[in-house]
Design a binder for these strands. Structure first.
Length: 583
DNA sequence: ATAGGGTTAG
């Protein structure tokens, strides 16, 4: 009898394996025995035919062993059918079958398949229950179980601290995979912590592998610290992972985000096998730095079939550089020549492109010509354009649409209020502000970072929180005085409130990037902290005044200032910006 | 036989 169960289980596994050899699924022939199942690619969906066949065998089995159950759950997990996986796990427990840690791992991992916001709450509940169950049964202390839990919580938007708690609770059972799991949880939200965990891992004598290293590189990309990226690059070389395509892709991305596009190109050129991500990463690097010609030239050399991301990169490059004709052509031809149908993000790029250039009408026409309903990103592109070119009528419509589609996002409210302000209609502006307050919509606080003396310093708007606030404000004041002699005039027309002129100026002076620059200058006056280039990164877009400020500053201090805002890079040098004031 | 971590994101 048990021989029959084994045989059927083998069949089931066979079908599952079959379901995994779908082209969307990547098999890893080099992985160790027992992990020959492969994994889903990001857009991968399983060929359900074979999964169905596995299911038929599963239900027809008169008796099942633990492996049959586990395989079936794992099949659902890899196929992204998380409800089915949970259901089967529950059924298994109802039948009184003892599960093992593989069962738990697959069930927990299935929760990573949740991609509908409406299911998140439920997913978190399942996650918590499985977490408790793991602790009760002792399986929690299997590194694979706790790592799966970390990933599942993290994917469901759970708190980083909750994830970290799991990591700490399972201490003593860590391996390099659990380290990578917790690092990648931090990377998205608190890159500095991710990097510090990576350092801790090194100090404790663990050997990072390709997975760990690429997470670490992503953290460097987030932090904009080239020094760190270069250090991790050295580790990559020392560990002999130079041939790893994913790692090289991470390096390209990371160097580009750190402002060193030349290093990105070097990594790209030295690669032996470039995949679609390599090309796209390099194209995105050019787009990020406003080098549209570089992007177009690289695209012409591309020997891999372009995908949707390729065209987002190209279109955003055109948008950043104001190449209207090229951009419009690309949008028109991408479907015809390359079989990639324009999606929302492509339209958003082109609406943004026209809008930036002041061709509001074309932006608006494109928006109404789109074959699908514009989403909030498209509307926000139009909104930005309306603000830049004082198109108040259309701006109000765009802001209203944005508020409707994303009532929790401050953007629509703020721009709407700005439009009223620039019209001098302060009453209406106040109404919008109040509505925002009533709905408890918070503006995303502006933050800037800069690295001084091997430390990354964070600045909030208004200089709040920084221990040297007083000194920074003092420095800023004298510095602004000097800039005014060079011709700097504060740009107050876009300030947010209906307050007196003087107060507006006051608020402008406290934008976080100005504080960051003042701090870098203070530190730079002591010789051992003097830097050739000052790099500042910012979480939201740089405003017109700060942009102007940085131009004058670069002239005054005779140093290059590089600002990375949420959108792109600005290289300020001798009073000018690489974006040619077009952004 | 089944089982955890990585690269493009405005």
């Amino acid at each position: 009898m048990s021989a029959l169960v084994s045989l059927l289980t083998c069949c089931l596994t066979f079908f599952l394996l079959n379901s995994l050899s779908h082209p969307f699924l990547v098999l890893h022939p080099m992985t160790k025995a027992g992990r020959n199942f492969g994994s889903c690619s990001t857009n991968g969906t399983c060929e359900l035919g074979s999964l169905d066949e596995a299911w038929i065998i599963f239900v027809s089995m008169a008796s099942r062993n633990l492996i049959s159950w586990n395989s079936m759950i794992a099949g659902f997990q890899i196929g992204g059918l998380w409800q089915k996986a949970i259901e089967l796990f529950n059924e298994m427990r109802k039948d009184g079958i003892d599960f093992d840690c593989s069962t738990l791992i697959s069930t927990i991992a299935s929760l990573c398949g949740i991609n509908d916001d409406n299911d998140v709450e439920l997913g978190l509940q399942y996650c918590f229950r499985l977490h408790c169950l793991s602790i009760r049964t002792g399986f929690f202390f299997e590194a694979r179980v706790s790592t799966a839990l970390i990933k599942a919580y993290s994917n469901l938007g759970g708190g980083v601290l909750d994830c970290y708690r799991i990591f700490l609770d399972s201490s003593g059972h860590w391996d390099i995979v659990s380290w990578t799991g917790i690092i990648s949880t931090f990377v998205e939200r608190i890159p500095q912590e991710a990097l510090s965990l990576f350092c801790q891992l090194l100090r404790e004598g663990w050997a990072p592998d390709c997975h760990t290293l690429s997470s670490a590189l992503k953290a460097c990309a987030g932090l904009m610290t080239e020094r760190h990226a270069a250090a991790v690059h050295l580790l990559v070389i020392r560990a002999g992972f130079e041939g790893d395509t994913v790692l090289a892709n991470a390096l390209i991305h990371s160097y580009a985000r750190c402002g060193s596009i030349a290093l990105s190109k070097q990594v790209f050129d030295e690669m032996e096998f470039r995949d679609i991500v390599s090309w796209n990463s390099m194209l995105k690097a050019y787009a990020l730095h406003g080098q549209a010609s570089g992007a177009l030239e690289l695209f012409s050399k591309m020997n891999v079939k372009p995908d949707a991301a390729t065209f987002v990169a190209l279109l955003s490059a055109c948008s950043h550089a104001g190449l209207l004709v090229e951009g419009a052509n690309i949008l028109d031809n991408m479907s015809k020549h390359y079989g990639v149908v324009p999606a929302l993000d492509h339209y958003a790029c082109v609406v943004d492109m026209f809008g930036r250039a002041g061709r509001i009408l074309e932006a608006k026409n494109l928006l109404s010509r789109m074959p699908m309903e514009p989403d909030s990103v498209v509307w926000s592109a139009l909104l930005g354009a309306c603000r830049k070119h004082n198109e108040t009528g259309l701006g109000k419509l765009a802001a209203a649409k944005h508020m409707e589609l994303e009532p929790g996002n401050s953007l629509g409210y703020i721009l709407m209020s700005n439009i009223y302000c620039s019209d001098g209609n302060f009453n209406e502006a106040g109404v919008v502000r109040k509505k925002m307050k009533r709905l408890r919509v918070r503006k995303r606080p502006g933050l800037s970072w800069t690295e001084v003396g091997n430390q990354v310093h964070e600045f909030a708007s208004g200089g709040l929180f920084h221990p040297q606030r007083e000194a920074i404000c003092g420095k800023l004041e004298t510095f602004i005085g000097q800039l005014k002699h060079l011709g700097y005039v504060p740009e107050t027309s876009l300030a947010l409130h209906d307050v007196e002129e003087e107060q507006k100026t006051e608020q402008l002076y406290h934008h976080s990037e100005k504080h960051a620059l003042a701090f870098a200058l203070m530190a730079g006056s002591s010789l051992h902290h003097s830097q050739a280039v000052i790099k500042i990164m910012k979480n939201i877009r740089i405003c017109l005044d700060c942009h102007n400020f940085m131009k004058f500053a670069s002239k005054l201090i005779q140093k290059q200032i590089i600002v990375r805002d949420s959108n792109r890079f600005h290289h300020f040098k001798d009073g000018e910006c690489s974006c040619k004031d077009y952004w």
